[in-house]
């Protein structure tokens, strides 16, 4: 109040009055210049500095709800592991022999017959040949698996017998391809004859329209009749699946058998 009266007397500018009166308390309510939040001295995380990756271990006086002594110990010995239930029809059993043992003895590997001959396979249908091929493939896979395991175990002899068996299988496979190649050439020859005879192989409309009936054509008709059925559905890759008419008529359809 005193100040106010003084200013009035000495024409002191009124806006400077607060500066003349010092504040009673020295603490000025103010904000820090930085706008970031102040750091706490200690954060609330109880697991600060505990890392499983760096294997730091626990902090001092850190307690867990599990004691270290109660933790289960891993069983590293494989013989003590619990037995795993394997499906008896698991597909990978086909990589093993009939006894389902890891290795076949040389005597058992050696007990096999000869390969299929081309003459025998000429009487088989494509389905039979295809099945026989896959039997061969699986047998070769088994032999490869056992040869690798035999070498790994350093088991002893048996390479020769295994190789001989595989050689026999390869001869069978070669005979299959030979038979199929023969069939393809037979089919191709029939196709050429059909083209020469002027048959319509485009697939649109009838393949053959009879025009003149003469007794002389009776022989040629029989030859041409068969390929025309084949022509309608044989395309590209499917050619191998086709069976020439000669083989079709004489086939017996027996079950395919392994080379052994």
């Amino acid at each position: 109040m005193q100040c106010l009266s003084a200013t009035r007397t000495s024409t002191f500018p009124t806006f400077l009055i607060p500066g003349l009166c010092p504040p009673k308390s020295s603490k000025v309510p103010s904000l820090p210049f930085s706008t970031t939040a102040q750091r706490l001295k200690r954060d609330k995380s109880r697991n600060r500095g505990v890392s499983a990756i760096h294997a730091t271990g626990l902090r001092r006086r850190q307690t867990l709800h599990v004691k270290k002594e109660d933790l289960p110990t891993p069983v590293l010995d494989r013989t003590k592991h619990s037995k795993i239930q394997i499906d008896p029809d698991h597909g990978l059993w086909q990589f093993f022999n009939d006894k389902r043992s890891a290795l076949t003895s040389p005597d058992e590997d050696h007990a096999h017959g000869r390969a299929w001959t081309v003459e025998e396979l000429r009487h088989k249908s494509w389905e039979d040949l295809h099945r026989l091929w896959w039997v061969c493939v699986k047998e070769r896979n088994r032999l490869a698996t056992e040869a690798y395991e035999r070498r790994r175990l350093n088991a002893g002899y048996g390479d020769y017998e295994s190789q001989e068996r595989e050689r026999t299988i390869k001869f069978t496979q070669r005979a299959i391809k030979h038979t199929l190649t023969e069939r393809w050439y037979a089919w191709d020859a029939a196709r050429q004859v059909a083209v020469e005879e002027g048959l319509d192989l485009s697939g649109n409309g009838p393949v053959w329209t009879p025009q003149n009936f003469e007794e002389d054509d009776a022989e040629s008709e029989e030859i041409i009749e068969e390929p025309e059925e084949r022509q309608t559905d044989a395309v590209g890759e499917e050619t191998l699946k086709e069976v020439p008419p000669e083989a079709d008529s004489t086939q017996h359809r027996p079950q395919p058998a392994a080379t052994g």
Binding site: L92, F95, A102, H130, W133, V137, R140, N141, L143, A144, T145, Y148, E149, R152, Q173, I176, K177, E237, L240, K241
Partner: peptide, 11 residues
Amino acid sequence: YLPNFTLTLLR
């Protein structure tokens, strides 16, 4: 149709 390779199963 007619693959010609072998597969070796390993232990």
